[in-house]
């Protein structure tokens, strides 16, 4: 399988209170491709459009021009469970605060025992609301949720930025093993060059315009 961005452009326009607005080009004629089994790192300083790229690739947003396709099909038009799953940077925002964790997982088709044990998720946590878990515990649920059997491409947007080195190492160990055994296409986005050097087979640098 191949996930491809062809000649995409994207810009944000910022409105000012007293009228007028500034258009900020994030991408202009950008190309990108990931195959199953690839581990691609995306490196850029902050504010350079890393998160935007993640959302475009996962089909959360559409580029202003150009195409993003999975096996030739436009990613934003994919119906049902998306084979391209994005793990968001802030787990607290990625989970409905009014849902118990078991319902959060049910929405993603349930939590397999395998994932539960390899991510060390406590059964007791399933009956809690997100506010009753720490950020790290929530992030483990978010990782489990994105790793449903239908997932083919996994996009990780700064998922370990707020973790200490030991936990960072353990989480990546798990994700790399999972990606390898399931032949997932992996896109890791980070401002940490050293991390990307360790976990990716190829690095794309988003440079300042």
């Amino acid at each position: 399988m191949i996930l491809k961005a062809e000649n995409i452009s994207f810009d944000y326009s910022t409105g000012y209170p007293c009228g007028g607005h500034v258009r900020r080009k994030i991408f202009d004629g950008f190309d990108f491709a990931v195959k199953s089994g690839d581990r691609v790192g995306v490196f850029a300083p902050s504010g350079r459009g890393k998160t935007t790229l993640c959302r475009l690739l996962a089909g959360y947003m559409k580029p202003a021009s150009g195409r993003i396709t999975l096996e030739g099909r436009d990613v934003s038009s994919l119906k049902g469970f998306s084979p391209i799953q994005l793990i968001w940077q802030n787990p607290e925002l990625a989970v409905d605060p009014y849902m118990k964790m078991k319902d959060v997982m049910a929405e993603a088709g349930g939590l397999t025992d395998e994932l539960k044990s390899s991510l060390h998720i406590d059964d007791e946590w399933l009956d809690r609301y997100p506010s009753e878990l720490s950020g790290g515990e929530l992030q483990r649920f978010c990782i489990a949720r994105a790793l449903a059997p239908e997932t083919r491409f996994l996009i990780c947007d700064e998922i370990t930025t707020m973790m200490d080195s030991i936990n960072k190492r353990l989480i990546w160990d798990f994700i790399l093993a999972e990606a390898a055994s399931r032949n997932l296409g992996l896109i890791a986005v980070s401002h940490e060059r050293a991390l990307l050097d360790k976990v990716c087979s190829r690095i794309v640098e988003l440079c300042v315009n």
């Binding site: 060390h120 790290g136 483990r140 080195s165 190492r169 353990l170 050293a194 991390l195």
Partner: peptide
């Protein structure tokens, strides 16, 4: 030492199981 060595810039070394608090279901 485990904290230091596990950092990506210092070798990204897998910590010994006794330091893997997360893997013991403690704290992430």
């Amino acid at each position: 030492r485990a904290l230091y060595d596990a950092a990506p810039e210092n070798g990204f070394k897998m910590p010994e199981p006794e330091f893997a608090d997360f893997a013991r279901g403690e704290i992430l």
